[in-house]
């Protein structure tokens, strides 16, 4: 499990993240997250705490910088009280999607029945250790935690091109490596400037 530490943010400044591939129980996971939102009372709080993570479809993430940028914009929004979704974790999914439609963001970038690899992030403060979070995570996710480097083989560049409407532009870049670095740069920039997009 790795982390981003944003020292200059006053509270909740650590984001732990891990890549799981393959994931065996995406359908169950999705159902559980939806159920957790509906349960009332103490039991509901407990269940919500159990799935208190951002579950991101790893095939739509281009690089570590991409993930970092989305997490940073979400933490920034939380610290300013300007979240546009209900939690900082759903805000990450919202930041990743190029449009302002929250349902679409969660459908595209969240966990779905067919998800094979997940990037899971948890935003917290210094009081929690990574092992405590890892333990909690392993109770919910049935899958193998792999090194972040494996992302290279997971990223679905064609789908990202489609979502960001970059099919024509990236073709002009020639070599596959320069195409990818071009897409990554546009995607990271779009995530970073989402708050001033339109």
């Amino acid at each position: 499990m790795q982390s981003f530490v944003f020292d200059h943010i006053p509270n909740n400044n650590i984001a732990y993240f891990a890549l799981y591939s393959p994931v065996q129980n995406p359908a169950e996971l999705k159902r559980r997250i939806i159920e957790a939102a509906k349960i009332e009372g103490e039991e509901g709080d407990k269940e919500r705490d159990a799935v208190n993570f951002a579950f991101i479809d790893a095939s739509l993430i281009t690089s570590k910088l991409h993930l970092e940028t989305a997490i940073y914009q979400a933490i920034l929004a939380e610290s300013q009280g300007s979240l546009r979704t209900k939690t900082v974790h759903s805000e990450i999914l919202f930041a990743l999607n190029p449009t302002n439609n929250i349902t679409e963001a969660i459908r595209r970038y969240g966990v779905s029945d067919s998800t094979k690899s997940l990037l899971i992030a948890h935003i917290t403060d210094k009081s929690k250790s990574s092992s405590a979070i890892e333990e909690k995570l392993n109770k919910v996710v049935d899958g193998t935690m792999v090194s972040f480097k494996e992302l290279d083989a997971i990223t679905d560049w064609d789908r990202i091109k489609k979502y960001y409407k970059l099919e024509k532009e990236s073709k002009e870049k020639g070599a596959i490596q320069s195409q990818r670095s071009f897409i990554d740069n546009v995607v990271v920039s779009s995530v970073a400037m989402k708050t001033v997009m339109q």
Partner: peptide
């Protein structure tokens, strides 16, 4: 900047915005 990036002009990419 984003418009330039998309059109392949060499400009610095955007990394964070706090308007």
């Amino acid at each position: 900047l984003l418009k330039c990036l998309r059109s392949g002009v060499n400009v610095p990419g955007i990394r964070m915005v706090d308007a």
